[in-house]
Simulated assay, not measured.
Amino acid sequence: MAIIYPEFNSPVTIGVTAPSSGLYKEQYSLLERAIEKMESKGFTVKVGDTAWMQYKAKSAPATTRAAELNSMLQDDTIDFIFPPWGGELLIEILEHIQFEKIKPKWLLGYSDTSVLLLAITLKTGIATAHGNNIIDLRGRLTDPTTAMWEKVLFTKKGEEVIQYSSEKFQLEWQHNNETDYVFHLTEPTKWKTVKNDPMYVKGRLLGGCIDVIRHLIGTPYGDVRAFQKQFINNEPIIWYLENCELQTTDLRRTLVQMKLAGWFDNCSAILFGRSPANQPKEDYHVVDVYMELAEELGVPIGYDIDCGHMPPQITFVNGAYAEVRIYTNGGMVTQRFIE
């Protein structure tokens, strides 16, 4: 078996469902504007009921969310599933997803959505895309880094797509003060490495928001060893990880657990996204965490890359073959859609 890359056949229909959080009524305009933007680009958009719902930290009960998601995953008229945003409790729906009935189609998102993305790729070998949410695309303009989601998803099997580090990133969210790009891109981007040396690595991409994907460890949805053996012929993995809320000691505990669970076996590199968290505990800083992990695993580690809750984001495809370069003036990610 091998990695399966979904392919678009024009015209493309987007299914919007909320497997984690939906929207409160006062937030509806965010999604409505995003839908208008997608339709102006030629996409057809079908919106599920859960997108317009939110109660007790979730859009709906787990079985309701799973039923709507299953329906879209099995619907031949829907080419692409694009949740409004992440949330907190997507993990509740995993036991209700009919993985064996999923028809290959793109899923794109991040934050809590990365639980779903990683679980689908590990269980089925279907490539999934980690990047922006549909609500991030409601602006009049789209910055060049974010805009690459479209080129990535339109890449065909056997082709490659190259993305470069952004010029600037957003330091903090200002929801009541949007720009034409939605984001406030004010801070110069600089990808870094633990050893302050240029980095060039190759491998298969896997990753997501570490706060939530860590909860797949030890479950039927997080069997990385089986995925390596079954779908990628034991090729090395490049992990991309982003931290939403963990302070440094919790991040460290999580990375040790991942190591003990074998997630870093046959790993060629780890990439960490910029983070609004990473708060030090006493004098224990996030760079200390990165340095310890690099020494223990003997692999290169890059950080402050374009991934996660400090936009903009590179679109990373779980399962794709990648070559990642970090150099003095920037970085680049080449992804090849090969089996």
Rank of each mutant, 00 (worst) to 15 (best):
A67I: 12
T13K: 15
G42P: 01
N9T: 12
A62Y: 01
I14Y: 03
Y28W: 06
V45F: 01
I78V: 15
R33M: 10
G22H: 07
G15H: 03
S29D: 05
L23I: 09
I14V: 13
A18G: 07
K56M: 06
E26Y: 02
D49N: 12
K37G: 08
M38C: 11
I78C: 11
N70Y: 11
Y55V: 11
Q54V: 02
P84L: 03
W85S: 01
T77H: 12
K56I: 03
N9F: 01
I35R: 05
S10L: 01
D49A: 14
A57E: 10
Q54D: 06
K25G: 01
A51F: 03
Q27F: 00
E36D: 07
R65A: 02
S40C: 01
P19M: 09
L31S: 05
M38L: 08
L69C: 14
K58G: 00
S40P: 05
T64V: 15
V45L: 02
D75A: 15
M72H: 12
T44C: 07
A60P: 10
A67C: 10
K25Y: 04
A66Q: 06
P84W: 03
I14K: 08
T50W: 02
G48F: 10
S59H: 00
T44E: 10
F80S: 05
S71K: 15
E68G: 15
E32A: 02
Y5F: 12
T77L: 10
Q54A: 06
Y28T: 05
A62L: 02
E68I: 15
E39D: 07
V12L: 01
